[in-house]
Design a protein around this nucleic acid. Sequence first.
DNA 1: TAAACATGCAACTATTTGGTTGCCTGTTCC
DNA 2: GGAACAGGCAACCAAATAGTTGCATGTTTA
Lengths: 119, 119
Amino acid sequence: MSGKQSSALTAAPLLRRHAPVFAALGDETRLTLLARLCERAPCSISQLAADSPITRQAITKHLRVLEGVGLVRAEAIGRACVFELDAEPLERARDYLALVSQQWDDALARLKAFVEKKT
Amino acid sequence: MSGKQSSALTAAPLLRRHAPVFAALGDETRLTLLARLCERAPCSISQLAADSPITRQAITKHLRVLEGVGLVRAEAIGRACVFELDAEPLERARDYLALVSQQWDDALARLKAFVEKKT
DNA sequence: TAAACATGCAACTATTTGGTTGCCTGTTCC
DNA sequence: GGAACAGGCAACCAAATAGTTGCATGTTTA
């Protein structure tokens, strides 16, 4: 319907919400941390740093980035700071990709129908 | 099974493949370009730049980033350089998120079962 | 209580990134 | 052929990022 689209995907607020999550996912170290938390959660900063070639402070920074977009939650337990994954933003990101992908498939189908009609 | 996991998610090659795609998606401008290409493709650089507050050269750089991870394909048509979306990397990224999300749900379920058994 | 541990904070560095401007080349179209 | 258009290339800039080191603080635990 209508030649006037733009709607769902380009709506600025939607983009502004998703871009930071993808940016947070766009780093190998952070992706590794997420995977690690996904398999053996919860983990303290030191535990996570022990598995990594980089320093504890670097790991902390990465964890704060992930926390900033809601991909992990931190809880202080005694002297340790324990992190746990939160899959919700992950699912929203996945849904967004599915939406774009779907919309593109639809566009291709419309194009195909148009071409065939013309022939 | 087995307590020795790590496998699927932390495997280095997998991470190395996905991180750059997420990084490419982690910018509002590029997300806007993708959405735009998804709705009215194919588009030339100038067309895309006309919709944007930033310069043509900046748009070009962003398009090259997207092209670098295979999210778009470029084709020279006369003097114009026309871009089209490729949904395949998008779907792989989506699948990866789904996998992490799924694995996390499983981990939660195992934890819950463990706690209940203990009680 | 003292040692060992877990973390936070701050300063600093190097690299990457997002953006710009200026200029040059190739392509349409009148 | 010449004007207008589409794009490439290169130099440059400012801000953000990924990483480091050094040190101070709170928490276990022997």
